[in-house]
Design a protein around this nucleic acid. Sequence first.
RNA 1: GCCCGCUUGGUGAAACUGGUAGACACAAGGGACUUAAAAUCCCUUGGCCGGCAACGGCCGUGCCGGUUCAAGUCCGGCAGCGGGCACCA
Length: 855
Amino acid sequence: NFREAERKWQAAWAERRCFEAAVDDTRPKYYVMEMFPYPSGRIHMGHVRNYTLGDVIARFKRARGFNVLHPMGWDAFGLPAENAAMEKKVHPATWTYDNIATMRAQLQSMGLSLDWSREIATCHPEYYRHEQAMFLDMLEAGLVYRKEASVNWDPVDQTVLANEQVIDGRGWRTGAVVERRKLAQWFFRITAYAEELRLALEGLERWPAKVRLMQENWIGRSEGARALFPLAGRPDSIEIFTTRPDTLFGASFVALAADHPLALELAAGDPALTAFIEECRKTATSAEALETLEKKGHRTKLEVVHPFDPNWKLPVYVANFVLMEYGAGAIFGCPAHDQRDLDFARKYGLPVKPVVIPPGADPAGFRIDDVAYVGDGRLANSAFLDGLDVPAAIDRAIRRLEEIGAGERMVHYRLRDWLVSRQRYWGCPIPVIHCEACGIVPVPKSDLPVRLPEDVTFDRPGNPLEHHPSWKHVSCPRCGGAARRETDTFDTFVDSSWYFARYCSPRADKPVEAAAARYWLPVDQYVGGVEHAILHLLYSRFFTRAMRRIGLLEFDEPFAGLFTQGMVCHETYRDGEGNWLLPEEVTKAADGRLVTVADGGPVEVGRSEKMSKSKKNVVDPSEIIQTYGADTARWFMLSDSPPERDLEWTEAGVEGAWRFTQRLWRMVEGALEDLGLRNARPGESVNGENLEAEGASMKLRRATHKTIAGVTEDIERFRFNRAVARIYELANTIDELAPSASAHVRRETLESLVRLLAPMMPHLAEELWHRLGHGGLLADQPWPEADPALVIDDSVTIAVQVNGKLRSTISLPRDCPREVAEQAALADENVARARAGKPVRKVIVVPNRIINVVV
RNA sequence: GCCCGCUUGGUGAAACUGGUAGACACAAGGGACUUAAAAUCCCUUGGCCGGCAACGGCCGUGCCGGUUCAAGUCCGGCAGCGGGCACCA
C-alpha cells in the first residue's frame, strides 16, 4: 500500500503543480540543479543519490520560503545512441526518446520535486537550433575558428577525440590505440579566457577547494620566456619556452619533440632519425611505459648558437621527453638545475655546468653529481647575471633577450583550445556551408535549425551525414553556387555547457530570455559527480563568458555553489570460477557464508567498489523502489555516509531504512488512537500549559525544538547524515517520553517530526501529515521554526577534569559565575578523591563546557 | 615524480572555531512475546583490570615526537590508502 500512497502523493503534487516555478520578483529565488542524465536506458544508483541530494535541498529551500527552480532534462546526444543503432538496428532518435520515456518514469517514481514543465532534451531541434545560433554569433565574435590540426583519430569509432578523451594513448570509450591525422577542425577559443577562468576560481567560494585546484592545474599557468636559438649555418631559429631563463648559461643542448617540424624535416634524409621518431610515437603513449621510460635522444647534425654568446654552439637532439603540444615543442637543457636534463646529459656525455650556487656553497667548488640543484641561490658562471638571485636573474635574462630581439617574456598555459568537431551523426550539426567560391559561409539564421536528416543508415563505419545521398549538397547562401554542408557535429560537451541557462526559459524563441535569465541565474546550487570536475565545469564557465560576449548573459560564473557527491559502491562477488556475480545471485547460507543462489557454490567476496556493469556489483533502483518504496531508498541514500564521501550500498542498511519508515507509521498511528491527541491542536494550548509541572512534556518540547534547530542547520550545510541521526534521536526520545507527556506536546512533536522528514521522505511525510488531520499538502507548508528559548537549556552538564583526566560531571545553571562553578567542582567527591589531598594549583573554567583542576 | 585529500569500535560514521571520543545507524549476542517463525519490544556491545553491587581504575582516534591545564582536532617527521596531473621545459 505504500507504493499506492507514493503514487497518490506524486499525482497530488503534479495536479497542484507544486513544483512549477515562475518568475516572482517579490520572493527570493533559489535555483538548484543536478547534472542532467545521459539517457542510457535506465537510471542507476548514482542517479538516485544525485537526485535525492538535490531534491532535499530543493524541498528544504521551498519550505524556507524561496521561489525554487528545480528543473530536469536530458543530455541526449552522443555515441551510445549510434552504437545502439548499429547493434540493434534502431534509429538513434527512437532509442534515445524511448530511453528518456523509461527514465522519466523512473525519476518520477522517486517523488522528486522537479518542474517537469521545463524539461529539455539536447537532441531536440528546439534546443539545438539555439546552440547553432549562438555558434554563429560566436563565430562572428571571433570565439570560434577552424584550423587544420593534427587530431587524435579513433580507428574504431572513426572519429576525432579531444586530447581530454585520450587516456594513455587510447580512446576513452573504445580503448583503441589512437592514431594521428590531419583534419580541418572547429575550435572554441577557450584559451583566450585562460587567465580569466583561472583568476575567477578564487571567487567560487562555494565550490569544493579540490575542484578549484583541479581546474587551476588543468589551466596550468606558467611564467617564463620564449627564446630563439639561431641555427648554425641556416637562416632560421629554434624557438623554445623556458621557466628558467636564469639558467641559460648552464645550457648544454637543445631538444626537439619528435613531432617538431624541424625534426620531421631532418628525418627525411635520416633513416635512423625516422626510426627514432617512430619509436617515440609508439612508446610515448602507455602510462606504464612513461613511468619507467628511459630518457632517450637522437643527435641531429644541426647545431644552434647560444642567444647570449655568438661563439657558443650547442648540439640539437630529438628527444622522447619533449612534447609538441606543450610550449614551443622544443627546450633547452640545463643539466645542473633540472633532473630530467641531468639524466639526459649523463647518458650522452654532455657538460654539466652549475650556474646557481646554493647559499653558503663555494662557487668554485660546487659540483653536481646525481641530483640536480633546483633551489634558490646566487648566479655564477653567467656573465651579466653573476651575483643575482634566481628571481632577479630570471627578470634580467628576459630583459636581455628582449633587448637583443632573441625572445620575450611569456606566460604559457597548459590549457588548449577546445576542439568541438565530431565526425558523428547523433550530435548538433555545425551550421556552416563550404563553398568553393566563397569559402566558409554561415548558414543564415533564418534557415536554422539545420536539422539532422532522419533517413540515415549505420551499415558502414564513418559519419552517416557524410554518406547521406542529399543532405550535404546545398547551394551557397552567398553566391548560390553548388556547395557542401558541414558534416561535423558538436562535441556533446557543447550541449551541456549552456543547458542551465536554457532551463530559465525553455520554450523561448531565443537561447535565453533576458528577464528570466536575470531573475534565475546564476545557479545557486549545482550537484553532481566529481568526474565532471574539470571538463564539463570548465567548458560551462567558458561558455557563460562566451554567451556574455554575444550579449545573452550578464554574468561570468554559471554555478555559484557546487557540491560534488561521492560514488555509490557495493561489494563485488565472484563464483568458484572467477566469474562476477550480481548481488542478487548471492545469498547467505545457514552457516552465514555467502553462496551462489544457482547451485550453492562458494562465493568470493571482493572489496567494495563503484557500482559498475563490468563487475556486476549493481543494484537496480527500480527494484528497490518496487520492494521498499522511494522513501526508503532516499532515506538510505542520506543516512549513513556524508554526501561527499563514497556510499556503501548494503541490503542490511536498506532494511534498516525500511524498518524506520514502518516505525514512523506506527508511531503516528498509535498516537492517533489517543483521542486527546487526535483533538489537540498544536500551538494553541502548548504555551498555556503549566509545563514546569510536567517534566516529560517540557523535556519533549525541548528535544523537539533542538531537533528542529539542528536539522535545519545540518541541511543548510549539506550534513544530511547528521540530520538523519537527529531525527532518529527525536524518534527515540518520543518513544521514551511520549507516554507521560501531554497530548498537545505530543502532537506538536509528531507534527514537527513529520515536517522535518518532508525533504527526505516526502511521500511518507505527506501521508502522515494527512493522517494527522491536515487538509492541505505538506509540500506547501513552511519549514518549522525552532523556539530559541527551548533550544538552550537552563542547566548544563559540565565535565570536570583533574590534571586533564575526566573525573566527574556536574550539573550547573547555564552561564553560572566562574566562582560558583569552581566551588562546585572542588566540592565533588570524585574530584576530591582524584586530588588525593594535593593542593590545587590552578582551576581552568571554560563556561558551560569543562572545568580542569590542576594539582 | 609533483599536487591534493583521507586514516576514529566488528561495520558506516558522530564529535561546532583545541574542552566529557564513539551520538545515530548497521551487525552481533542475550532476553520478552509466540505452538513456532516473522515482526515488535527490552538489555548488552572499544579493549583490559578490580568489585556481590552501585561503581572505580588503566589503555585507546594509523605510527613516532612536540606544543598546551587540556590534542581525534594544532605543529614536525614517518607509514598506509585514495584522488588529480604527469617526460609540463
